[in-house]
Amino acid sequence: MIQLLVLDNARMAHALVDYLATLGIGCELTQSELGVAIWLVDEARFVQAQQEVKRFLADPTHPRYMAASWQSGRADARLDYSKGMLDPVTDFLHQAGPLTLLVIIGCLAIYALDAIGLPMVDALAFHPTLTQFTDWQLWRYVTPALLHFSVLHLVFNLLWWWYLGGQIEQRIGSGKLLILLLIGAALPNIAEFFVSGPAFGGLSGVVYALLGYCWLRSKWQPACGLTLPPALMGFMLFWLVLGFFDLLGTPIANAAHLVGLLVGLLQGWLDRHSPVSHQR
């Protein structure tokens, strides 16, 4: 299924779904943290459904929507109008896939183990010198992405990973997310090593890869179901620029961020004509 939109008014969401049903466009409603999510059942009708959503947003109080609800002649047993949200933990899990959750658990576990004195940095950090680039410890190209050095660093990256990675995994598939994770970690880590040395870590290079992928593919292929509000993209680009001008007051892996963004943009461009097969 494809998520069409989320509304904070359950009755209006139900009216829109009833109206779409009169056009032969089947949808389902689920409660989410932000309100009520409307999911398109028949993905072949995505373009028509998207047009109707735009028409609804332009005039949500038009009588056609309430008339459709009256015409349906059935009460809404699917939603509890007394509350607009699911339990936050349930909704958190609902918006993620297995790989998304596995990486979140892994990062939290590594941070906790390092905090109690186990040498996780030594085991997972990037190769310390160029002479070790060809040794058998290939995981060191990727595992620095799992290392975080403060709670703020950890939470910031994991929230972005959950938001972007969850979208990609549920709407494109776990395989694509795994590719972006591996390449979006390895290439930015290599770039950061040559710029600043081996003392770095964090999932932000991967986050920028997911950001670039979601943004470009949503522009080239809206039917894929990926969404990224322009304001969020603008914020992250502004953050990237601030890092290069050293205005954030803390060491930033600027090379990793930039290369991660380029990895995501390239993968999004390569996938712009890929068949849409939503996993949800």
Rank of each mutant, 00 (worst) to 15 (best):
S72R: 13
S204Y: 07
H257R: 12
L181I: 04
D59Y: 08
L216F: 11
I183E: 05
A115R: 01
C214T: 14
H127V: 06
A96W: 06
T30K: 12
V206W: 02
L34V: 03
G106Q: 01
A77I: 11
Q71S: 10
S69I: 10
G35D: 02
M1D: 04
L5C: 04
L247R: 13
M120V: 10
A75L: 08
F156I: 05
V47F: 12
L261A: 07
G73A: 06
G106R: 01
G165D: 11
L270D: 03
F238V: 13
I105Q: 07
C107M: 12
G117R: 03
H153V: 14
L240N: 10
W162V: 11
D122A: 04
M66T: 14
N254Q: 07
A58G: 05
W160P: 00
L242R: 07
G249W: 07
D271E: 10
L187Q: 00
M233Q: 06
A231F: 11
R64E: 00
H62F: 11
L159S: 08
H14V: 07
K54T: 10
D18S: 13
S204G: 00
T61Q: 15
E192P: 01
G24L: 05
N254F: 03
I116P: 05
S196T: 07
L23T: 11
A96R: 12
N254G: 12
W161K: 06
C27S: 06
S72F: 04
S69F: 09
L23G: 08
T134Y: 09
Q137P: 11
S150K: 04
D91V: 06
L113W: 03
M120L: 11
P251L: 08
A44P: 00
Y81L: 15
M233T: 10
P60I: 08
A67P: 03
G84C: 02
G84M: 10
V41R: 13
V41I: 15
A115G: 11
M236H: 15
F245S: 13
Q170R: 15
A191S: 11
P188T: 07
I183N: 02
I116H: 01
C27R: 00
H148V: 14
A49D: 04
G201N: 09
I252W: 07
A115I: 02
A13I: 01
D59E: 12
P128T: 10
P251N: 09
W162L: 14
P144L: 04
Q279M: 03
L262M: 14
V17N: 08
T134L: 14
G260K: 02
L226R: 04
V36P: 00
L146N: 12
A231N: 05
Q167L: 13
D271W: 04
T30I: 11
V103I: 15
G264K: 03
V47Q: 14
R45H: 08
D59K: 09
P251G: 06
V121E: 13
K176P: 00
A125T: 06
A209L: 08
L232C: 09
L86Y: 01
G225T: 04
L248G: 08
L4P: 15
A10R: 09
A123F: 02
H257D: 03
A96M: 15
L16V: 03
S204R: 00
Q51P: 00
L181K: 02
R272V: 07
Y19A: 10
E28F: 00
L101Q: 06
N254Y: 05
L262P: 05
E52Q: 11
P198L: 13
L124S: 05
G184L: 09
T61K: 13
Q48E: 14
T61F: 14
H62L: 14
L102P: 08
D18T: 08
H148L: 08
A13M: 02
A231S: 13
